[in-house]
Design a protein around this nucleic acid. Structure first.
Length: 571
RNA sequence: UGGGGUGUAGCCAAGUGGUAAGGCAGCGGGUUUUGAUCCCGCCACGCGUUGGUUCGAAUCCAGCCACCCCAGCCA
């Protein structure tokens, strides 16, 4: 992995920065589940932590807004970060990861942040403002015109101290006062127009309970938290670029030594990078939350969701996600990555690790008329075509089998490589059969096929002719019934958020989930305990839904299909 | 129209004055008991645009254009 941030880190290292002083943090707010965009950030932050001996990445819950945050999100985030960074599954907890530092909460620093505010008040750099929210908005100015000073801007240090303490003691109602930095109401950067540092929220906080009726804002909390953790590189997304002057202002004006900050070679620096966008989906917690709240999906971990938990449920691997993050790079330009890149990363990993099996989604009965009735033979089939270490499984073969209905045509052109009336095809892992008859019901619907097998074609090709097609099948008497969940992109619009005048839900794909009942899997699937990906040959990668839904498989991703494009010419 | 950013192929993305890496997608071919995998080949006379500097410019300079972010007591 290489990018402009790592380049900057390497440069600092080459200029003498002690590798053990390298420290990053991943700072999610626990107000939703982590998604692919967070995976990019985690991957980046962790890659910096892997640059040197003693370097580390912290996990810090940025929990300064109790109204939107929940313990359940904290638990989910912790699980997702561990899963993502624990590709080999060896670590039992975050602390076991080689380059992981510590887990913290911004709320762990509420006392220090409060003291920092006191410092600023004492330096005359912060004041208690009693403007109403409406007045605050009115006096902030606009993008093109300066704001006006608050009438409370010149309160004495003593009065500010007294009021701020009263705020802390819970003596005021929500919104009655705020603590503001005294910077410059005429700054062209709106973030510097006397930004709010603290607001009153008499709400129970998931970590600190009722002890704090006031909560620091992100812009004040973040630099202080970074300094207290000895963060060297504070990586965030582009929209925070305008906040960097404020970040640096806090760094400059607060005396961190008296707050107990570690002795580090330098103050943290904030570096911004472009957030991830993926087409045919949305990557914003606010929008994903709507999908959950409006029951458009089945929770944050719905396999269609681009959340870490959703993708995990669907069978994506941590390795694939990390690989994807390395593939897309890290830059400062807005980019929309094509889903095909993600699918490639997933297939690449699954191809290596998924044992093969056969499953017929839309069964069509085939009777092998020249095969003895009542006979069953067990055929050996490799679990992986390229890797013998996977071993073999046994596949029962008998007189009645099922094949995929779509693998048969009464007539077809030469491009069609599957079974055609009067022609031959190879049954995967078994014999070559020839279709001799096609039985239909009164409505003309094909109900079963009569075929003959060539008993000299097990494990070898016929000598006098070429059979090019191979199809999958299951033995009728041994097949296990399965239910398949086939997922498609959640949105049919490539950029659901592109048009600001149209609700992004308008772009939803109504067929993002197709449930296939009555699929038939090969006998060995009865023993599948789940927990690892499978490839159903010729169709896709699947993973068992789990013990609470036996026989249900989720399709992780379909196999690449170079034939699909010519489907209108497929005979 | 204030401030901050970004423009290299259909999508990502290297490149930092010496003559356009790589990946995805796509296309063509080979191997194949998965139309998968794997392998080989093709895919930017041009880097938003117009000028300028230079022996030489995606890289330096100037102008212009397009797009993104900022007016939460959200992060």
């Amino acid at each position: 992995m290489h990018n402009f941030i790592l380049a900057r880190v390497d440069k600092a290292l080459s200029e003498g920065l002690d590798p053990s002083a390298l420290r990053t943090r991943f700072p999610p707010e626990p107000n939703g589940f982590l998604h692919l965009g967070h995976a990019k950030s985690i991957c980046l932050n962790y890659s910096v932590a892997e640059r040197g001996d003693g370097a580390a990445m912290n996990l810090r819950f940025d929990d300064t807004n109790p109204e939107k945050e929940e313990q359940t999100y904290i638990d989910a985030i912790r699980e997702d970060v561990l899963w993502l960074l624990n590709e080999d599954g060896k670590a039992k907890q975050l602390a076991d990861l080689p380059s992981f530092g510590v887990e913290r909460f911004a709320s762990s620093y509420f006392e220090e942040i409060y003291q920092a505010a006191r410092q600023l008040i004492n330096k005359g750099l912060a004041f208690v403002c009693s403007l109403t929210p409406e007045e605050m908005t009115q006096t902030r100015g606009t993008l093109t015109s300066p704001g006006q000073n608050s009438p409370y801007r010149d309160r004495s240090v003593e009065e500010n101290v007294k009021l701020f303490e009263a705020m802390r003691n819970g003596e005021f109602e929500d919104g009655q006062h705020t603590l503001r930095a005294k910077i410059d109401m005429a700054s062209p950067n709106i973030n510097m127009r006397d930004p709010i540092l603290y607001r009153i929220r008499r709400t129970e906080h998931h970590q600190t309970g009722a002890i704090w009726p006031i909560f620091p804002m992100y812009d004040f909390t973040h630099p202080i938290s970074d300094a207290l953790e000895g963060i060297s590189h504070s990586l965030c997304t582009l929209e925070f670029e305008d906040h960097r002057p404020l970040y640096d202002w806090v760094m400059r004006e607060v005396d961190f030594a008296t707050l107990g900050a570690p002795d580090v070679p330098a103050l943290p620096v904030q570096i911004e990078f472009a957030r991830l966008n993926l087409n045919y989906t949305v990557l914003s917690k606010r929008k994903l939350k709507r999908l959950v709240d409006e029951n458009i999906v089945n929770g944050w971990a719905d396999p269609r969701m681009p959340t870490i938990a959703g993708m995990r449920a669907r069978g994506f691997t941590a390795k694939a996600l990390n690989h994807f993050c390395r593939m897309i790079g890290v830059t400062r330009s807005d980019a929309v990555v094509d889903v095909s890149t993600l699918e490639f990363a997933v297939r690449e990993d699954l191809n290596e690790r998924a044992p093969r099996a056969m499953c017929v989604q839309d069964p069509l009965k085939v009777i092998i008329t020249n095969y003895p009735e009542g006979q069953t033979e067990t055929l050996d089939a490799a679990r992986h075509p390229q890797n013998p270490d996977f071993g073999t499984r046994t596949v029962p073969f008998s007189r009645e089998i099922y094949i995929e209905a779509d693998d048969f045509r009464e007539e077809a052109n030469k491009k069609f490589k599957r079974l055609v009336l009067g022609k031959e095809v190879r049954l995967r892992n078994a014999y070559v059969i020839r279709c001799v008859d096609c039985v239909k019901d009164a409505a003309g619907k094909i109900t079963e096929l009569h075929c003959e097998y060539d008993d000299k074609t097990l494990g070898r090709d016929p000598e006098d002719r070429k059979v090019k097609g191979v199809i999958h099948w299951v033995s009728a008497a041994h097949a296990v019934p399965l239910t398949l969940h086939l997922y498609d992109r959640l949105f049919s619009e490539p950029l659901p958020e592109a048009n600001k005048d149209v609700d992004f839900l308008e772009g939803l794909n109504p067929n993002s989930l197709q449930i296939v009942e009555g699929a038939l899997g090969e006998a060995s699937l009865a023993q599948d305990g789940g927990g690892f990906p499978l490839q159903f040959e010729r169709t896709g990668y699947f993973i068992a839904a789990g013990p609470q839904a036996p026989g249900v498989y989720y399709r992780t991703v379909a196999l690449r299909d170079t034939w699909a494009g010519g489907a209108d010419d497929n005979g």
